[in-house]
Design a binder for these strands. Structure first.
Lengths: 123, 123
DNA sequence: AGGTTACTTCGCCACATGGCAAACCAACAT
DNA sequence: ATGTTGGTTTGCCATGTGGCGAAGTAACCT
């Protein structure tokens, strides 16, 4: 199965869970201890801890223990990497569309004009 | 288990697989048939088809069959949604950092100055 | 010391996912 | 009509995930 995990693999996988996204959202507004994170969600501590481990492995959050509490903080680099990937491919798609449009406009300049064609998409 | 799938759930889950990301990357540069997509990856057709189904369910790609070939195309809206989520939380984190910095600067204005404190992070 | 708090680990279960091979179906092509 | 091509379905298997409760450990409080 999908071994040889790329960083993005783990990052996106971590973000695929609503609980984990909520944790990230919470941490984006400040650090928090494990039990503080547990409160809003109706799930047990062991489960939450598992989520935190997943987030840690993905590089999205970092944790450190001081005394008996473990504080969790967001590490935005992984988030940025994921965002960058998405951005790159969105713009790739858009620029392709632009080229296509230009090409169609060019063709239409030489042939008859049918306004409806401009927005029609064959899929 | 994670039932009641939010759109982002499926989108991020779909992007968590390298094969699927490669497919998205490929499609961001133009539509393609199933078999054309299969080529670069050393995996069987059934497996690839499963990937495509996952991508379809996630709203990242749309497919349509004409004759015996199925053409796949990217649907950038889901990508944009995911990007927006990431962007929102990255900026949230950054603005928190800014507030914190401002606060520290303020404190330091009133007390003695220790330059090393500015970049120190307690985690 | 003894209790409380805050995690942590340890099974355990149900289910989704990624992979394959093999058989199958529907269009073209000849 | 028959073969070939392109996709599709159908098992099957191994692994990972999300959830739980129960028991364990390591601070901290009194």
């Amino acid at each position: 199965m999908a071994n040889q995990h790329h960083g993005l693999d783990r990052a996106f996988a971590a973000l695929a869970d609503p609980t984990r996204r909520a944790i990230v959202a919470r941490l984006s507004r400040g650090e928090a201890a494990v039990s503080a994170l547990a409160e809003p969600f109706a799930i047990g501590l062991p489960t939450l801890l598992k989520h935190i481990r997943v987030l840690e492995r993905s590089g999205l959050v970092a944790t450190a223990k001081s005394g008996r509490v473990r504080r969790c903080a967001l590490v935005p680099d992984a988030l940025r990497e994921a965002e960058a990937w998405l951005g790159a491919h969105i713009t790739a798609w858009e620029s392709r569309l632009d080229r296509l449009e230009a090409h169609l406009a060019d063709k239409e300049r030489k042939a008859g004009h049918d306004p409806a064609r401009d927005t029609r998409c064959d899929l």
